[in-house]
């Protein structure tokens, strides 16, 4: 092999390696770490809702833009954007009674943190601390502002609908 040809071959190999390294690695999975959130048509809270995703859902990450990720839910092949603060690279266990089937992860891979403070612990706490009243905590959690309401509120006050900050 002439030096010139050798170099061309080496070049092609390196180029292929570099490109696949830079792009191929995007086929990455991440897990929804919040109770429930939405996949949206655009990287913004005010974008149309494509689908809803639950806690522990594993999503294929296609690309990121600022603090938003474009992801596909393999369960129904729906693709949309969600904020990176809703995602973790860890695996999580679906809640009992969740529609999604349990993931096939072995228990060894599960985060010990999931075993920390859960509904079970709150229940125990409430039994032991009868004077601590959760009524208003439950009530305040019921106050949910639909993003469309926020848009109208911002518009009326001549404010800006931003796309959400960076994690």
């Amino acid at each position: 092999m002439k030096p010139m040809k050798k170099m061309t071959t080496a070049f092609l190999i390196m180029a292929a390696a570099a490109v696949s390294f830079a792009t191929g690695a995007w086929a990455k999975e991440m897990t929804v770490q919040v109770n429930m959130t939405q996949l949206r048509a655009t990287p913004a809270y005010y974008g149309a809702v494509v689908a809803t995703v639950d806690y522990a859902a594993r999503l294929q990450i296609l690309e990121t833009k600022g603090s938003w990720a474009k992801a596909t839910d393999p369960k129904n092949n729906k693709t949309g954007w969600l904020h990176l603060s809703a995602l973790t690279s860890k695996r999580l266990t679906p809640k009992a009674g969740a529609k999604s089937a349990p993931t096939s992860v072995s228990t060894g891979e599960l985060s010990a943190a999931e075993k920390g403070f859960t509904e079970q612990i709150e229940k125990d706490y409430r039994q032991k601390n009868r004077t601590i009243d959760f009524t208003w905590v439950d009530r305040m959690e019921q106050i949910n502002i639909n993003p469309q309401k926020s848009v109208a509120f911002l518009k009326d006050g001549q404010l800006i609908a931003t796309e959400g900050g960076r994690p």
Binding site: Q33, V34, N35, T37, Y45, S67, L82, H83, S85, A86, W136, R139, M140, E141, I143, N144, I145, P147, K149, S150, F153, L154, T162, G164, G165, R166, P167
Partner: peptide, 27 residues
């Protein structure tokens, strides 16, 4: 309380951490 949530939850969406396990709520 609704108004405080309107202002607060709208602001939270523009924060660096818009997603928490069950969202932002104000009282």
């Amino acid at each position: 309380n609704y108004y405080v949530n309107l202002v607060g939850q709208t602001l939270a969406m523009a924060s660096d951490k818009p997603e928490t396990f069950s969202g932002y709520h104000f009282l």
